[in-house]
Simulated scan of single mutants.
Amino acid sequence: MRGQIVKEFVVEEKSGFDRVQLNFSSYKGVSDINKMYMSDPVMIHSHLSKVNILPDFSYHIQDAVLTANLNHSDVEQESFGKRLSSKLFATSEGDFDHTWEVGLSEQYAYLLDLHFGIGQANVDLSNLKVKRCKITTATADVSLNYMEKGRNLTEMDTLLVKVNMGTVDGVNMTHANARNMIFEVNYGQVNLNFDKHFESDKPCHIMTTVGAGAVYILLPAPQNPYLVKINSTAMCRKKLPSYLTEVGDKVYASKGYEEGVKNLITFEIDVSVGSLVLK
């Protein structure tokens, strides 16, 4: 595209660390984060337009941790209203000005701290070793997509997705292999798809909170042991599958639930205004 600047940032260090802490922050753009078929721990490729300031990139190794930082700030300091109108009336990826490709390697264990301002974040952590992942956005939508045969190669402690306004889509979320999953949206939607067979020998806690909007969750098969705890107001419409049995005040159990089971899945869902659909 005319007037674009192409920048690439690569960490070529390959020894002296056993974990990679990636701190990535972009105020605007369409970002793709996924596995790359290279041995470098971090590779970031960008196409930038209308830039007033170039991204700031640095990395260092300390205490067996490689820390890589990329920060792209907005010197124009767009107002929330301007960011909102840009989001609502965007018709293509180009309307978000910048594109980012972030490549990770299966050879390293990652701690991810990803921030997106406005735009779209497409995150595919299939076949990677991710021990912790935090995603925050202002008005960017987040798509979390695990491939059908693309599990996290290590146990994740916490997966956190926090969006001020937008949509969170999660596909094959069972494959995150996480002890804790937290999804928070002030205004917007959360759509989560869990595999029918939630293969885990450890407990898993999944918390979903929406201030105003909608929650849609495709639950694991009824034979899996799980509880669903719902906190909602009269301004939230609810639709639940018939096989769930109410075992307490707004607490529902699957057919496979047994008290004291070690691999219990617990869904905690809080919707203030909007709708909740479980299937």
Rank of each mutant, 00 (worst) to 15 (best):
L227N: 09
V10I: 15
T137Q: 08
I5E: 12
I230F: 04
V247N: 04
Y216W: 08
Q223N: 11
I5G: 01
G248A: 10
S92T: 12
A140V: 05
E246V: 03
N164E: 11
V123F: 14
T245I: 13
R179N: 06
S126H: 10
S232A: 15
S275Y: 09
A138P: 01
V142N: 03
V171I: 14
A212V: 15
W100N: 05
V251L: 13
V163H: 03
S25G: 05
H175C: 07
D157R: 08
K131R: 12
Y187A: 12
A253L: 11
D195W: 00
I44W: 06
S254W: 07
S39R: 14
V210L: 10
N186F: 02
L276Q: 07
D201T: 12
H175D: 10
G16P: 15
F17L: 08
V10P: 00
T154G: 03
H47N: 11
K196R: 14
D141Q: 08
A214D: 14
S86W: 05
D56V: 12
F57H: 09
F116N: 02
D195C: 06
L244V: 08
R151L: 09
V51G: 01
I118V: 15
Y110E: 06
K28P: 00
G248N: 09
G3E: 06
H98L: 06
K239Q: 13
M36W: 13
W100C: 00
G29K: 04
L227T: 06
A90G: 14
S49M: 11
M173K: 06
L66P: 14
S232H: 15
A214E: 15
S242N: 09
I206V: 15
T137P: 02
G94A: 11
K14T: 15
D141V: 00
E148M: 07
K162W: 02
D56I: 13
D32S: 11
A234T: 11
V168H: 02
K87Q: 05
G166C: 07
R2D: 11
F17K: 14
P241Y: 09
C133E: 05
V168P: 01
L264I: 07
D195G: 12
M38W: 06
P55D: 03
G170Q: 12
G150S: 09
M235V: 02
D113W: 00
Q77T: 07
Q120F: 02
G3C: 04
M165S: 14
A138K: 12
S275V: 00
L111T: 01
K255V: 08
V11A: 06
E148S: 11
A109D: 12
F57D: 06
V210F: 07
V271C: 14
L153G: 02
L66R: 14
G256S: 10
P225C: 04
N263I: 06
S126R: 10
M207N: 13
N164A: 15
L88G: 01
E12D: 13
Q77R: 13
G188C: 11
C204D: 01
L112T: 03
V75K: 09
E155L: 12
K255R: 13
V161S: 10
P55T: 02
D95G: 08
Q223R: 13
I265A: 07
D124I: 00
E13Q: 15
Q120V: 02
P222Y: 04
D74R: 01
M147S: 14
I44F: 02
P220M: 10
K28Y: 01
T137C: 07
V102N: 01
S49D: 04
E258V: 13
E199V: 08
E259H: 11
E76A: 03
T99G: 07
L128V: 11
K239A: 14
